[in-house]
Write a protein that binds this DNA or RNA. Structure first.
Lengths: 159, 159
DNA sequence: GCTTATTTCATACTAAAGTATGAGACATTA
DNA sequence: TAATGTCTCATACTTTAGTATGAAATAAGC
């Protein structure tokens, strides 16, 4: 312990010097920072504005964007004995926002036609048929044409 | 006409004076505008930054955010024939020389599965499923899976 | 044992289907 | 007139489907 005290006394000046030096260095660093901020105040200001208004933009977009409406059909099985006359369910078709053209294509799909054949039948391009298919699959919440047909028949969208 | 010319000559200086005055005024206005822009260049710059980054924010938000989805659930009664009159036509199946395995695959096809899924279900390789499909299509005399399903249902090979 | 039918798998290829994205034309509607 | 919905088409790319062919393993029946 005495040894430690002696050592401390001997080295006090050194330690003090070190501390002063450290403080001075910190002060200088601080001055440098101030200087940097001062000389670049415009850029910093602009940066702040940029960040702020980016945030504003994001907030605006999130607030004002309309939610996409998705209709999900929950199927309830009802068992019947007789084959009733199957009538296309018009209300469900409109509810799922299936357009006339899409319904046409759905019927052709159900007949087992390829996209090429459908395009030829309707006098449109292959691209068009593919686009209709895409929209149709999304509206019916299916992945493949065969599922679309299957579901459409089950929901009586087509006969 | 002569009268007009004389009037014009008399008033030419006046007109020229007016025009000069107008030009001068325009020039002054332009200077003023320049001055305004100059003295407020920082605000204008900041404004531009604000607009730009607001747009950036909106774009970012729209691009990167998942679309808001509002879900509407519709309950739909699906009528299912519970009677037993739809029974796989065994005689026709054997007549067409459709094997057990092929019939299994036909049923999975009818449920809208992909070849991959069928392979996984039956614990066989994709190649095998394709081979079965090929044989099946030939026996049913169709070109595509969707036609195979359609025909199989029509012939009551599957329910 | 040999043949035959069935099931399995592979490779290599072509064709078709599906995804993602952007955009023009046109009619309807607020 | 501006916004919206529908239909149209394109390009570029990835994934599935389908074709052709050959072949191994196995069980059933002659």
């Amino acid at each position: 312990m005495t040894n430690f005290k002696n050592t401390f006394k001997r080295k006090r000046s050194t330690i003090l010097y070190s501390i002063s030096l450290a403080i001075l260095l910190f002060f200088l660093k601080w001055l440098e920072l101030r200087y940097i901020i001062f000389t670049h105040s415009f850029e910093i200001y602009a940066g702040c504005i940029a960040v702020l208004f980016t945030a504003l933009g994001i907030w605006l977009a999130l607030k004002l964007s309309k939610p996409k409406i998705e209709t999900i059909v929950v199927e309830k099985e009802v068992r019947v004995n007789s084959n009733e006359n199957i009538v296309p369910d018009v209300s469900l078709i409109s509810q799922l926002e299936i357009t006339k053209r899409e319904l046409e294509i759905l019927n052709l799909l159900a007949q087992g036609h390829s996209n090429q054949e459908i395009a030829a039948t309707l006098f449109v391009s292959l691209s068009t048929v593919k686009t209709h298919n895409q929209n149709l699959f999304e509206k019916l919440d299916v992945k493949r044409r065969i599922q679309a047909v299957e579901k459409a028949k089950r929901l009586h969208l087509i006969s």
